[in-house]
Nucleic acid binder design. Structure first.
Lengths: 204, 204
DNA sequence: TTCCCGCACGAACGATCGTTAGGTTGACCG
DNA sequence: CGGTCAACCTAACGATCGTTCGTGCGGGAA
């Protein structure tokens, strides 16, 4: 049946450890979740974790970096230049919302516990995040050049859209798939409305 | 000169302790910042902190609750009904951005470290936050009835606007006052643009 | 002056933390 | 069969945590 009897009989593989750790970090916070907590969740003694990871810090890093890497692999292509800026933004937003929903725990860990990492481990993660943000800003700027968007500052607009979506990822729990898709569509609408009218909605 | 010689000669009052604690909690996180860290910052021995607060948990609560209370006191009145919905939203956003900038550390602590509190201490803080969110949603709904806004769901729109602004509060560091005011105006524009066009920007 | 008490102190408590050392198991390879 | 090695174990290390205890000081009241 299974490939080998040496394989973990239950969910005790390296990836399972990362997943359980992510869930605990998301629920209790990085510092409040102990190695003993993680070990108990995986049904393993604390010392056994050190056969797979050199430190607790490294576990956090792998969760954060792995998430952001997969995130960029899945979401970034949606912003490719052969799409209209509006379609690209909508697709990216939908992809981000779907992805963030699929990896619920890791979203929270990557955004809220990243600061527990030393600077040199934060850097590669921040670089990935910046890459996505720049791509979003470039798409918005393209939309402005084509006259479909109008914003005072594309980079600022990208931050606003990203904050809006990542905020959603912190509280929105869809009932089912259609609920999720509806929310993705609505947030696409919201972002497009903002990007279209921002420049014209000057106060006073 | 001073009112009394019994007063703290330097910044060692109860409020100073809360302020230093907030800064440490914001920088290192609630769990990573120890009572000894706080004591050192205030130039006091750790045990002395317990003459002012019964526990570390209580310090966190007073920071979070005090912030949200002052927040509502300052920002909520901007949403009063004798203003046009658009003006109310703009004023509230400006007020929130200014207030959050003035209380930089506490914003971060109240939003990111609140979960370290037990449920019964989170409840009153959440109630205050919900009060603000409901007021924002009511203002948006009023704007829809008056025909100036168009959104599929006022509560969802309120969450989107709030997430956008609180996201800003986590990364935006203004150079000076005019920089801050310009950002407040721009985010007001962004929110108004979104609330106006959301309903009309349906995809497909 | 004497008493009082708010406030800060030094020292230590027990608990829990991340991590390590050393031993045991058992599937695989020659 | 005997050797190898990854994986897991038990036990414990030193450090640090939040917190408590008993004491000392010093200004205001009596």
């Amino acid at each position: 049946m299974t490939a080998s009897l040496r394989d973990r009989p239950e969910g005790r593989s390296r990836d399972d450890m990362l997943e359980h750790a992510a869930r605990l970090f998301a629920e209790k916070g990085y510092d409040a979740a102990s190695m003993r907590d993680i070990a108990e969740e995986v049904a393993v003694r604390p010392s056994s974790l050190y056969h797979h990871f050199p430190s607790k810090e490294r576990i956090l890093f792998e969760i954060c970096y792995g998430f952001q890497r997969d995130f960029n692999l899945e979401v970034l292509p949606e912003l490719r230049a052969d799409r209209s800026p509006e379609a690209a933004i909508r697709a990216a937003i939908r992809s981000e919302i779907l992805f963030s929903n699929r990896r619920w725990s890791q979203v929270r860990v990557a955004s809220r516990e990243r600061r527990s990492l030393p600077r040199e481990l934060q850097a590669p993660i921040n670089a990935l995040r910046r890459q996505y943000r720049d791509a979003m800003a470039a798409t918005i700027e393209r939309g402005c050049r084509e006259g479909v968007f109008s914003v005072p500052d594309p980079k600022l607009a990208a931050m606003a859209v990203l904050d809006m979506i990542s905020g959603l990822g912190h509280w929105f729990k869809p009932r089912d798939r259609s609920d999720l898709e509806r929310m993705a569509a609505r947030y696409g609408d919201a972002a497009v409305a903002m990007l279209r009218g921002w420049g014209a909605a000057t106060a006073g």
